[in-house]
Simulated scan of single mutants.
Amino acid sequence: MAASESMTAAVLTGYGEPPTVQRRPRPTPATGQVLVRVSAAPITPLDLLCASGGSYLGPPALPYVPGVQGVGTLADGSGVWFPTHAGLAPGDGGLAGYAAVAVADLVPLPDGVDHRLIAALGYSAVAAWSALTLRGGLRPGEDVLILGASGTVGQAGVQIARLVGARRITAAARSAAAAERLRALGADAVVPLRADDDVPGLADRLREAAGGPVDLVLDPLFGVPAAAALRVLRPGGRLVNLGSSAGATAPIDSATLRGGSLRVLGYTNNELTGQQRAAALVAIAGHAHAGRLTVDHQVRPLDEVAAAWQAQADGTAGARIVVTLV
């Protein structure tokens, strides 16, 4: 295989194991596809889930190149964000020098935008944007509570709520060190989440920090934090859930739901149309390019992908890891 016909890629050869760097044939685009030279791709929770072999869709065929999203350039030098089905369906993903992507799935990026930042934002920012605006119906002047705010979705959510015009934004996070960072990103108040929190006590602390009831809760946690947050919603308020990192179930009581005529809404990126996803990404990229939207992230070269993958899997990375390919 000639060097010009091959590329370097992260390749998964065993479930639950980090990928290794290998030479692979450069993909040949099928009808309706185009070749993207990948510049950066994140390691995401979905990548880790698929690679574990325990995904609800079943174990993917090995070997394959992971990476459910990426950022790169077309032959004319224009920048694009792209999704892949790596780990979800047969085919390779974004953690490689090149990716064959459906033309209809490409999202154009502003000239000069930081590809590493767009990779870090990616689907997480899309989830925050769409959960707040499309699913949650956030309107200017409303008060917002962001749970799990130190994570990528939460950080993006704080800034997006401010961009949309929220009046007051309260953030809640387990990391005490995150408080200063979240205030810098736009949070008016930050509430520490504790392992021994109970629903009434946490609800009191959230309500005090928020200065009263809130209109909308962005919840990537569920569990006790979600149940407490429901008690802070004003009548007719909405909680949008998009994760369960604090618990698969939550001790929600009927009286709270009925008494406030509250709405608990589930959200997943899978419900978005291609047009909705592209519109969210165009808005996100525009704000990022203008310096109005960012998230904490680490940048690692491809030759460190095994260590980076393990750090993300162990939860020791401290931030979203973005792998650079060029």
Rank of each mutant, 00 (worst) to 15 (best):
A149T: 06
V305R: 06
A178E: 01
L48F: 00
G291N: 08
H289E: 06
S261R: 04
R231C: 12
S261T: 01
L106Y: 07
S78K: 13
G32Q: 05
V299P: 01
Q312L: 11
G53A: 10
D47K: 13
D188V: 09
E142V: 03
D219L: 04
A119T: 04
G16S: 13
V158F: 01
T268M: 02
P18E: 09
I169T: 02
G237W: 03
A248H: 09
Q69K: 03
Y98I: 09
G70S: 08
A30Y: 00
P301T: 06
T28K: 15
V326T: 14
V80H: 04
V224Q: 02
L48I: 15
G186L: 10
L57Y: 12
G259A: 01
R37F: 06
S52C: 11
V80E: 06
L35R: 04
D111G: 13
A96G: 04
R181H: 12
L265Q: 04
D188M: 03
E17S: 15
R24A: 15
L46W: 09
V295R: 03
L106N: 07
T31K: 12
L121I: 12
D204Q: 14
I43R: 00
P220K: 11
V305I: 15
V217N: 00
A229W: 00
E5H: 14
Y267C: 05
T31D: 15
L62C: 12
E5D: 15
Y98N: 11
G67A: 04
V113D: 10
A128W: 05
V295F: 04
P83A: 00
G148L: 11
P66K: 07
L12F: 13
V101W: 06
N269L: 10
D92L: 12
G94T: 08
N270F: 11
S4A: 15
P140E: 14
T256S: 08
E208Q: 13
A279Q: 07
R320C: 08
G243A: 13
Y123F: 13
D219I: 09
A279I: 01
L262W: 08
P140N: 08
L272I: 01
G87I: 11
T152F: 02
